[in-house]
């Protein structure tokens, strides 16, 4: 059971660093949302920054891979993303097809490397 819960300290950090900074925006939306114009310039900027941060997260996992992903060489990680993206575009933006293609490239590359 203690393995399941782990360290209580980490759960406190989850709330301070994760839950509160995240929920605050939903609750602000609930409280003050009515008066905001959806097409306002501020929201265009916010959306662009949010998209770019998400892109940074994707890049971080690929460039500084966590755990088992670090056992896959860099060129193979990037190659899998490039091929997956090509399939995504060719399949009329099917997220599913892109993910499967990327996974196949990574797994077959890893298998080929032995």
């Amino acid at each position: 059971m203690s393995d399941f819960i782990g360290d209580w300290h980490a759960l406190v950090i989850l709330f301070v660093a994760g839950v509160i900074p995240n929920q605050i925006w939903r609750m602000l939306g609930l409280w003050f949302g009515g008066g905001l114009d959806e097409g306002s310039e501020l929201l265009v900027w916010v959306r662009a920054v949010a998209t770019a941060i998400l892109a940074g997260v994707i890049a971080q996992i690929l460039v500084q891979p966590p755990g088992a992903l670090a056992s896959v060489p860099g060129w193979l990680r990037y190659g899998a993303v490039v091929v997956g993206f090509a399939v995504f575009m060719l399949s009329r933006k099917s997220i599913f097809a892109g993910v499967i293609a990327g996974e196949i490239v990574m797994l077959s590359g890893k298998w080929w490397l032995g």
């Binding site: 900074p21 605050i24 925006w25 939306g29 959806e38 916010v46 949010a50």
Partner: peptide, 13 residues
């Protein structure tokens, strides 16, 4: 985290 969560604001709105 909080910067990434700003996008939730327009969604909720």
């Amino acid at each position: 985290v909080t910067v990434s969560a700003i996008r939730l604001f327009p969604m909720v709105v």
